[in-house]
Design a protein around this nucleic acid. Sequence first.
DNA 1: CAGGATGCCAAGCAAGCGCTTGGTTGATTT
DNA 2: AAATCAACCAAGCGCTTGCTTGGCATCCTG
Lengths: 200, 200
Amino acid sequence: MTVQDKTLASQERRKAPGPAKRRILDAAARLFRARGFARSTVRELADAVGILSGSLFHHFKSKDEILFAVMEEVIIDMDASLAERLQAVEGSEARIRALIHNQLEFTHGPRADATAVLVHEWNALSPEGQAALLERRRRYFERWHEVFLQAREEGLVHVEPTVLQQLLHGAVVWTAYWYDPEGQMGLQGLEDAALSLVLK
Amino acid sequence: MTVQDKTLASQERRKAPGPAKRRILDAAARLFRARGFARSTVRELADAVGILSGSLFHHFKSKDEILFAVMEEVIIDMDASLAERLQAVEGSEARIRALIHNQLEFTHGPRADATAVLVHEWNALSPEGQAALLERRRRYFERWHEVFLQAREEGLVHVEPTVLQQLLHGAVVWTAYWYDPEGQMGLQGLEDAALSLVLK
DNA sequence: CAGGATGCCAAGCAAGCGCTTGGTTGATTT
DNA sequence: AAATCAACCAAGCGCTTGCTTGGCATCCTG
């Protein structure tokens, strides 16, 4: 048994799968998405995790901090994932496709709950929390902007980049409200349709 | 003094401008949009109107009923306004433009508060309330669908109508989060940009 | 001018909220 | 074996919430 094994062994505790914080964050994302942050109670969240409400505050200082943690985690992952995808492809069309693909993956994939919370519980976040995440948000959208600036230079698109980028982003984000992953059209088809909006 | 004058005179009461229900609904739309429905309290709303919290319940049975009233009013007006606009123009391009124009007008015009509440406090509405408004919603989107079906037949658009319609609707609705009416670009420019998404 | 609505205030209730406190348990470290 | 620690429970505090009650003044109607 190596030192690393020891560390791993002491990391996975007790009966429940995964560390407590992980279980809380996952349950919080699901609950906040379903009920909305303000309507969700710490007792509901604790129930979902399988502990008493007071025990939540052993892991987080406040209910607000849980919301912040959910959002911070997903926004970091989203930005990192996008950066990786953009680095892996060349050409404006492929890069725009990467923007769409990344957003669709987070919106409908395994991180869908946290992504939905990030997107439309933003106002529920404290002003300090918003300020703390604003830089990440800015960086994420700057990646979008760079792609569209280049696409414009190449004559691939003709609308003003700032506007086009926001329209496309809105169209993709909004799929959360109507797209059915179980339905006929796959995510690939959705990606193609979204791409066709900006390419002539 | 005619009978109509009498009726009008008895409709506008007291010192405050407009009947009480009107003032409550307007204040509610503004408050619910700014704070979110769940975080808004009946005391805050009463303050904004200029009465005590208990007096609200003389006009509405519950806080939920106020939310419902705000949403019902704006969804009815939105659908009626769209129907009127569609009847006034001919040709698929002009009709798609009418869809966009109508949505933009409600999203950024005088009814912006109520429209925003309708759009993203839908989950805060009671299941019964949702059911009661669903028929209106369905009718509204059916108008969109008809326009895009015809546009497809004419070969004006090439993406599947259902998907294209949802993507465009999302793009336009999402402008609420980034478009600045005080900024450089006017609503007309936004309308043109949105139209260019669907027309090749 | 009687009489009933109507619109509002003053006061407060019951329930539910986020969060705190003090203590127990069981595993890990020394 | 003793000390330490994280994770949790049991209980409940103080506050805010949506809503109710009872009464007072103003208005419209017959």
